[in-house]
Design a protein around this nucleic acid. Structure first.
Lengths: 342, 342
DNA sequence: TAGGGTTGTGATACCGATAACACAATTCAA
DNA sequence: TTGAATTGTGTTATCGGTATCACAACCCTA
């Protein structure tokens, strides 16, 4: 445990123990035949020098780095935060480390971090892709022979393991709920259709209206970035509408937050003037103030299952066709939709 | 861009371009003299093969991996989530990748992940340590010559770069605020004193009471894990007290959430029956429902500054004595303390 | 007791890149 | 025009480990 300047290598251990580096390697990796006496001498030398084998060197010959990448559009989004936690946990238990990358929902940044992860020779990548336009990035991974699994979002034209929530069905249920409460002008704030979750929720929205025998009014669909500012901006446009919607389905919780702020800023009330439903719960906020009616997705489970699918591929437990896992969401009715008394 | 099974190496590129691997290396790394014609031929070969140099191999000879570690007690804690985002951003801009580790506030797990990071030969570690008992882990890093910076929490006996919030002062202000509102029985829910933030806030609590000429009533200090369950449990104990506190200072927001739940579960009201203040805002929750009176720390800035301090050391821009950065907190008065009308 | 098998260990090559040196070809100054 | 400096490129060794083969010492069986 002496404080050494230069890093201790396998040779230093070998020298101290009076054996060859190969023997030290055998002790480290266990299994192979080493005499008990030698083994103890080597182990003593290892702890005396505080030796830790380099994963770089080992990774180089074994062609395995023990590292995965997790790529998400926004680590601070409470939904992805849970995905991260789930992924980190499963990876660690399986003896892998996770390199975390935040693309800020930026395609170019996504391209860059994927190149970085290739350079790092990660063994696999769990990714919540920016959009369908992420396709070339994923094809690059495929060319490189790096396993990946899509988490939360699929990508058109990419056939791979994927785990996501049942977005279309969830959206249908949310909108049906609003319809059942008597709403007929239901606004929808959503990002671009080239994000699969947005596309599927959009489809669910239309399906629910059609099932109720209603036409879809395209002026009630606002496109905006999936963050509070986007929600706020979109809601303000709704409020300028001649027929303001009486209820709004926000594509996710952050959009809903921004939109609700805009409603309140206009001196109106939620849910009395405008009712709200959205996807994804906000873990801590709901604890303090269970207000938002949400379709709660099992975010942490998306992370754990995604990582498991990935590890199955990497470790050869799963060959063959892609596996698609769809997780049901949980419908939490609270005050924002107006179904409950205040 | 052909889809190759085995990974493309520098030799493949060299062969295709009709040069030696060394020349390819020179092209990749720029700077050194290579004839324009050769350079183009090599560049063409690189893109034709889709070659990406291995950071493993490069890291091995250069003794630099381009990787940092970020170790936090809980990634899903909204405070640390922001720290993560700040750190990730600074690291990426500086050309480094971040390996994220979650210790779940478990010392043994912390020891393990630190060993892992040593094995990975990360160039530096930004860590929010579990407690003062993390000291041996940090000494191990020091022996190994791996730079580290403490984020959010200091560790007794460890002299290193560190960035944290002004906990004692923040606590004083919070408690003084409650005192000014007329409260005299102010409960304090806090984790163990061997976490520096807890210790400092504890000190601030005592200071504020003394400054007001009050004795500290030890029965008003409850020790509990710093999470909602801990807060809830501690609050229930307070409620069984013969003299229930009229106000509570919770060591952080998660503790406050749990405690408030317990108050409400007992059929009491916040702030009318029990007023609340705590450290750390909850970004999204406060947007929807600005209820908690908090001492808001600049969490993302802790992440960015911490990472900058670390990079300064790694890249030799800072030698000499440890730098200690203390960031002021922002006092946000909202409803939970009872100072504002409902 | 000779031949084949086992056991414990070392020697050598190599993973994929680069540092350091070598050297032929070219350019330049005197 | 000739020796010195420069330029462009290759060779070799090396980073820190491990796969592979080699081999001496010992064991056993017939």
């Amino acid at each position: 445990m002496a404080g050494t300047a230069a890093t201790v290598t396998i040779k230093d251990v070998a020298r101290l123990a009076g054996v060859s580096p190969m023997t030290v390697s055998r002790v480290i990796n266990g299994g192979t035949r080493v005499s008990p006496a030698t083994r103890r001498r080597v182990e003593d030398s290892i702890s005396e020098l505080g030796y830790v084998p380099s994963r770089l060197a080992r990774g180089l010959i074994r062609q395995k780095t023990g590292t995965l990448a997790l790529i998400v559009p926004d680590v601070a989004n409470p939904f992805f935060t849970l995905v991260v936690r789930g992924a980190e946990d499963v990876a660690r238990r399986a003896g892998y480390r996770i390199i975390l990358c935040d693309t800020r929902a930026d395609l170019e940044l996504e391209r860059e971090v994927i190149e970085e992860m290739i350079a790092h020779r990660v063994e696999g990548i769990a990714i919540a892709p920016v959009s369908d336009q992420s396709r070339p990035h994923l094809e690059r991974l495929r060319n490189f022979g790096i396993e990946f699994v899509l988490v939360d979002r699929s990508v058109q034209g990419i056939d791979s393991d994927v785990v996501f929530g049942d977005n279309a069905d969830g959206a249908r249920r949310l909108v049906k709920h609003l319809l059942d409460l008597g709403h007929r002008r239901i606004g929808f704030i959503v990002e671009s259709d080239d994000v699969s979750t947005a596309r599927d929720r959009h489809q669910g929205y239309r399906d629910a209206l059609h099932a109720a025998g209603l036409e879809v009014d395209e002026t009630l669909i606002e496109r905006a970035p999936a963050d509070p500012e986007g929600g706020s901006t979109a809601m303000r446009r709704f409020l300028e509408h001649e027929h303001t919607p009486t209820a709004v389905f926000a594509v996710n919780n952050l959009v809903a937050l921004g939109a609700i702020e805009a409603v309140r800023a206009a001196g109106l009330d939620v849910p009395d003037d405008v009712a709200f439903v959205c996807f994804d719960d906000i873990e801590h906020a709901s604890r303090l103030y269970p207000f938002l009616t949400v379709m709660s997705q099992p975010a942490e489970t998306l992370g754990t299952i995604g990582t498991q699918l990935l590890l199955d591929r990497i470790e050869g437990r799963a060959a063959g066709p892609p596996r698609i896992v769809v997780l049901p969401a949980q419908f939490l009715i609270r005050r924002s939709c107006g179904a409950l008394a205040a």
